[in-house]
Amino acid sequence: MLVTWKYRPRKTFIQSLDPRTRLIFFFAVILGLTIPEIWDYRIIFPLFALSLTLYFLARIEWKDVKRVWPYIFVLLFFIVGLNGLLSGRGGPSSVTNLPSPVVFTVPFKIPFTDIGWDVPITISKMWFAITQMLRMLTMAILAIPIPYTMDPNIYGTAFRQLGASDKFSFTMDLAFRFLPTFARDFSITMDAQRARGYEMEKLKGGITSRLRRLAPLIIPVVMQSTVTGEEVVDAMDLRAFGATQRTWVKADLRYGPRDYFMLGLAATIFIGCCVLKWGFGIGEYFVPEFFLNLFS
């Protein structure tokens, strides 16, 4: 059985936009930040403010997203932030290559011995961790509202109208539809295995044995999906999928004035990021003066 995202029609600015506009805007911001490799907080912060504004304009109820945000914050602060702080990796090489004052060191040593090493935490790594978190949050808060505010019937149509082939559009459509189903299946499987005494938190042993013990979670979901797939293939074949050109739901999508405004903004963001970086050299990673002064 397919389950859907918690989509609900709302009278909001976001939902009045053409789905193509929303996808183009989403990719324009992501590509604007990633293709010219923007790490300058003066560009990232305004984009973050814009993403946050759009998120609030979507008016998604807290009860719908209250399980998503804790996960994002754990990922953001404890994984991405900590990884950036300790290693300085995942971004431009200038984070670790340029000399920067060491604020403190974190000892990674075997207890009661001197075996191990001290990891220096520099001002550059600290600022990088903040920038990295802000950059990721900018992209994440653009993605979060999509499943809650975009009609699941319209995913395939949007890709088709953007020029993708029938088969590719249908693959994208199905992939989006299956996502919440498999997320639900995974959650049910985890609960069922826990009820049988499986303790995910107590995975012990080396990497190999830990991976083997993940099998009771992964195998049932994957095998069930292959069975579901056969049923979907049969249903589609019975409807002669691929024999003729497909008719799409709401195939008469039209851009309105709001869409042209957002598309203009998307183009400005993407082209602006590229021109600033490649034309004027603005957008590189650097530690701002005010942050350096905090430690002087």
Partner: peptide, 16 residues
């Protein structure tokens, strides 16, 4: 059809 469906299922599973 089979490739379209399993491509989508594989993508969704890999994504999740």
């Amino acid at each position: 059809t089979r490739q379209v469906v399993y491509g989508a299922i594989g993508a969704a599973l890999y994504g999740v």
